[in-house]
Write a protein that binds this DNA or RNA. Structure first.
Lengths: 155, 155
DNA sequence: CCGTATCCATTCCGATACTG
DNA sequence: CAGTATCGGAATGGATACGG
């Protein structure tokens, strides 16, 4: 009877996305999508997730406009899942998460460059947080202030 | 009997953090922590989450070394929760997520600058993904390639 | 005031069987 | 191959009662 709280109407732009990606699998699905994966079975094989969960997660991502489905592309008889523009907008999030994971979840000799820009063939160095005037803000000295405050509520 | 899959031993640096932050509340707790929140009740009041869940999530974040607890600071008789260096390393992730949320989950007139660098008093502009030579990689042209590949496995 | 423990409903996830 | 349906167990989350 007590429904789980949705963040979709929250005033904070950090909160709303959590309905779409705040779980154990969605970001990994999107990681594979950025790698070029489009097929249901390819996701399933890469992730090792059970198919019913993959089905639910894919539908949730489609419902949130992060992925869409196209009838076919390589002649296969089934759909393919593609990143929308909104979905591609998650790239900095994945890079930032990956950077953090590599720094704090792996031993030094375990770390390697594995992010490559597909267009230029360049490895991705890092995600940088910059202020309005372009100054680089070191995260050690930086904090989020009043992050949840909004001026209006159109929800 | 069938345990949920842990990503802690995954080879991918995007995957491992999901045990720590892959849920509906952890990133919001950390958002508040960046705002300066340290007390249990302050988190609870800000988030509206039930106290038992908050307790479990805080302990999970402490277990992952993202927060730590200090005996007291303002003379209060209880603990306070503080970001560790590892926790502060999540700042780019939160900024990137917030940027994406603001762009795709809010109407234009609903959006305002709410990220402020505490030290310089400057609004945070955006998160940028750059290559090794410092070139800015637009996320429209960019994809993650071989993101999950690791050279060694020291787990 | 600061949490923890308990109870319960919902959700997530894994295994598997099934349909097209 | 591409999913969906069903089942059971585990985890999440909400309401609330309880002890420090």
């Amino acid at each position: 009877m007590v429904k789980r709280t949705s963040h979709g109407a929250a005033r904070c732009p950090v909160a709303r996305p959590l309905d779409a990606i705040g779980d154990q699998w969605s970001l990994l699905i999107l990681r594979d999508a950025f790698e070029g994966t489009t097929r249901f079975s390819a996701f399933q094989k890469s992730l090792g997730v059970s198919r019913n969960i993959l089905s639910v997660r894919l539908r949730n991502l489609v419902d949130h406009g992060i992925l869409d489905t196209a009838p076919a592309a390589d002649g296969g008889a089934y759909q393919e899942y593609r990143l929308t523009e909104k979905g591609r907008g998650l790239f900095p999030v994945l890079v930032a998460l990956r950077q953090w994971g590599e720094t704090y979840f792996f031993a030094p000799e375990e770390s390697h460059v594995v992010l490559v820009d597909r267009k230029h063939g360049l490895p991705v160095r890092r995600v940088e947080v910059r202020s309005q005037d372009g100054r680089l803000l070191g995260h050690e000295d930086t904090a989020i202030s009043r992050i949840g405050e909004r001026s209006t509520d159109t929800t």
